[in-house]
């Protein structure tokens, strides 16, 4: 298949940036979206042009690096997938595909399609952990009884890969889905309860400092999240937060 690509090009953080149109030929429908971009880049390198910078690592939907806004949706069309899991058979021969970086004040563009998502790291550093050494003194998994339902919900929350699609897709650039998943995965388990109150206050405080917007409950994040993180986590974080503030 032959495609027209409109890609955001930006030489560096201070460059103004612009959309640039490219043609790619002989794309195999079984290629992943990132492989299609590899083909484009090989072509650009052969022509002596600057290849398009984009983030990627695992290419199997687990690292959360491949942050691309494709045809107006985070990770493109399709649900429950990252960009590396999107295949070219989702498009038609002759299509025009628009590719942009995540847009949020808290995720500034570094180059082309690559954004700086270290705001997420700072939120985790603010409290997204438990303060005991967990390496070298492994405790038997069944030593602390945990209701199956809580274990399942904590695990579901823990599947968040920190990709930032929730922020990118939210009209308010709100990070509530990500932060609530990280709050929930610990708040649901006895090991995490010990520091739950401080944790939620600190993580939300950091989230606000980073310049993310406020949640309006549009639900767009839940729809676009590649891991199906539920809005239930946001409701849980709101409860946790209120309890922490008033107690």
């Amino acid at each position: 298949m032959n495609l027209t690509l409109k890609i955001w090009r930006q030489a560096g953080p201070d460059d103004k940036g612009r959309m640039v149109t490219y043609q790619v030929k002989n794309v195999n429908p079984d290629m992943s979206f990132l492989e299609m971009l590899d083909v484009l880049n090989e072509d650009l390198i052969a022509k002596g042009e600057d290849p398009v910078a984009f983030d990627h690592d695992c290419r199997e939907g687990i690292c959360g690096m491949c942050s691309l806004y494709i045809n107006g949706e985070a990770h493109g069309p399709g649900r429950g997938i990252t960009t590396c899991q999107l295949h070219m058979r989702s498009f038609k021969d002759g299509d025009t595909i628009i590719i942009e970086p995540w847009r949020a004040k808290a995720f500034p563009v570094i180059k082309d399609l690559v954004t700086d998502r270290s705001a997420f790291d700072r939120i985790i550093q603010a409290g997204g952990y438990i303060s005991v050494n967990t390496s070298g003194n492994t405790i038997d998994a069944n030593a602390i009884p945990i209701p199956k339902e809580n274990a399942d919900k904590a695990f579901d929350a823990a599947t968040c890969i920190g990709c930032g699609a929730c922020v990118a897709t939210c009209k308010n650039s709100s990070a509530m889905l990500f932060v609530s998943a990280k709050v929930s995965q610990l708040a649901l388990l006895p090991q995490g309860r010990v520091e739950a109150k401080e944790r939620v206050l600190k993580m939300v405080h950091q989230m606000d400092l980073e310049g993310f917007g406020n949640c309006t409950n549009t639900g767009a994040c839940e729809v676009e999240c590649p891991k199906g993180i539920s809005l239930e986590n946001i409701a849980r974080m709101n409860r946790e937060y209120l309890a922490a503030v008033i107690s």
Binding site: K6, N71, G72, E100, R103, A104, K105, N172, G213, T218
Partner: peptide, 21 residues
């Protein structure tokens, strides 16, 4: 106003109707 400020550069092409009312 805070929500507007959280996205200083808008998308060139966006499809919000795909995921919210």
């Amino acid at each position: 106003l805070q929500n507007r400020a959280a996205r200083p550069v808008k998308y060139y092409f966006n499809k919000p109707e795909a995921n919210s009312t």
